[in-house]
Design a protein around this nucleic acid. Structure first.
Lengths: 340, 340
DNA sequence: TTGTAAGCGTTATCAC
DNA sequence: GTGATAACGCTTACAA
């Protein structure tokens, strides 16, 4: 036994247990048609030997690898890390491993690249991060190939077996409501990049809060960013040039909110006394800048954990996993009533 | 041809090319003993068919998977992401994929866990991140199992085929020299966590700069942190309570430097007028806080890229890859001459 | 230089 | 219930 590699194989188990390979295989795969005696006996031999099925051989025979892919095209490091953490928590102790696959959503060959990747590696399933998760062709591709998938997003993108989403729109409405409660009326918006669903949802939440409060703002109070710090600085520069200028700004993510803060500081505008700011994501930077940033916390780790469970669940368990997650406002030091 | 899965196999290629499987295999594996005619012919059939060898079957036959593992136990998300980026850049277009494997270096079963992981998955190679990269037993384990490895670190941890390192010590000396040039004499140090090689190297660099300038400081000017923002705040609180207090503080990473800044602000100490601060890493937060943080930039993406190339290089190429990388001081707004 | 046969360690088929 | 036997798609002897 235990040739070359040093690890016991199914043959060793079969020989020692005095049964056939197939019977061992049945034990491993929890086949129902097996006498309890044989099962028990084989299980004893397995644990005695410390036998673990060889993933490569299984992958070949099953035409399916026990790998979960994370497909993303994402600018935000912290978000990707959180997703990885969540997935890995769910995968811990299972036979699954995590393979990371960044892609370029702008590339003309993107779909083909993903197809090749999935077909060759025979992934068990993939988690799709925004913004690529918003690509319906990609989801269809996974489906066609027979690769399970779960899409993460800011709104309902798919049926509950194939998606986990947060309620960005409502969460932003709550954040802006909070500004309004504090007495703000001139509220600026730093938008996310065009084409991102999250940007759309957050904008919608912003506008719903304003219209519910019967506040009408000129279009100039909306500046577009692209989720980077620098774009936040530039957007804030435009907003703060306005006369009268906004007394509060909601930025569609923390990076841009940090940029707004930066721009305010360069002009000698005190935050929160002269300007209130709210961000979105609650990345570490939010708590670490000065003043600490009031922001919307997105339960991204839980969402990723849930996504991985949906992927690896067999059959009915899946139904148990939630698909909608609630974001909440974290109140810190960057909001105060307006001065005037 | 192309049964079940829809993808062409080596048999399809062999049949269509009118040669044996083995000949096709030779073409795939670049065997030198092959007539140019046959090679050319088979290559044509391969590309005509769009044939790509099945990784699962290769893995089984070769007893080796074309997967590169990233093993880490790291608190810093940005660092892990940068490493992933570097590795993935090197792996792009190759047959290799990246598998991420976080571990708990404190766990009693850590070595066994890693062993099981490597033995079962038959990884081609692994990149070890600090601080686990400093564990010699882990390196030995990889070696024993026959899994290639490259360790990333703050100093020479291994021979050049198995390591990429940065010159943390020198880089910190240069940073502290800069503070001294500006006129600072009372310089505080926020240390990294005990047991981290990087913390040790950075401390050494700090002390070398001081002793070269004939500056002697009380031990109270050194406060220990653990690389988190909060530990930076606490360490700074101790340092800023001192009488006379330091006019400058070097923190062993940016997170803690941000914490120092935070603590200073809470006390109404102006940075850089009343206190200069230098960090280490040049993570995004460094440029995004106010004032922008002067810090040491560590070429981590290049290092990771190089690590992956060392792993996947066959034979001699490896020698070409550098093992030592230089960190450089990035001067921003958090340093000024002392007031007195 | 090329081909044949025998693995690699599993699962699927189909008898018994 | 259980076990031969043939896949799965590739590589490594060993021949030719």
């Amino acid at each position: 036994m235990m040739r070359k590699t040093g690890l016991p194989t199914i043959n060793d188990v079969a020989r020692i247990a005095g049964v056939s390979k197939k019977t061992v295989s049945r034990v491993i795969n929890r086949s129902p048609l097996l006498s309890d005696d044989t099962r028990k006996h084989v299980e004893d031999v397995i644990s005695g030997l410390g036998y673990v099925p060889n993933p490569q051989a299984r992958a070949l025979a099953l035409r399916r690898n026990f790998l979960i892919g994370l497909i993303h095209d994402n600018p935000n490091a912290q978000m990707v890390m959180n997703v990885q953490q969540g997935i890995l928590e769910s995968l811990h102790g299972t036979e699954f491993e995590l393979v990371v696959r960044p892609i370029d959503r702008g590339s003309a060959t993107m779909l083909d690249d993903v197809r090749n990747f999935l077909e060759r590696q025979r992934l068990f399933g993939v988690v799709l991060l925004p913004p690529v998760s918003e690509n319906d062709q990609l989801a269809k591709l996974c489906n066609d190939i027979g690769c399970r998938y779960v899409r993460m997003g800011s709104a309902e993108l798919d049926d509950s077996a194939h998606m986990v989403a947060s309620n960005d729109c409502e969460a932003v409405t709550a954040a802006v409501d909070y500004l309004i409660e504090q007495g703000h009326r001139r509220i600026g918006l730093v938008l996310g990049p065009h084409g991102f669903r999250s940007a759309r949802e957050r904008r919608q939440g912003f506008e719903q809060a304003l219209s519910a409060a019967k506040i009408t703002l000129p279009r100039s109070m909306i500046a577009e960013g692209n989720y980077t710090f620098e774009s936040g600085v530039m957007a804030a520069d435009r907003l703060l040039d306005l006369m009268p200028r906004p007394s509060a700004i909601f930025a569609c993510n923390d990076e841009m909110a940090a940029g707004v803060l930066h721009a305010a500081r360069q002009r000698g505008i005190d935050v929160p006394r002269d300007l209130s700011i709210i961000g979105f994501d609650d990345t570490p930077i939010a708590a670490h800048i000065w003043p600490p940033l009031t922001t919307v916390r997105w339960p991204i780790i839980s969402m990723a954990r849930s996504a991985a469970l949906k992927l690896t669940a067999d059959g009915d368990e899946m139904v148990e996993e939630p698909s909608m997650f609630r974001s909440t406002l974290i109140r810190r030091g960057s909001v105060a009533p307006p001065r005037d």
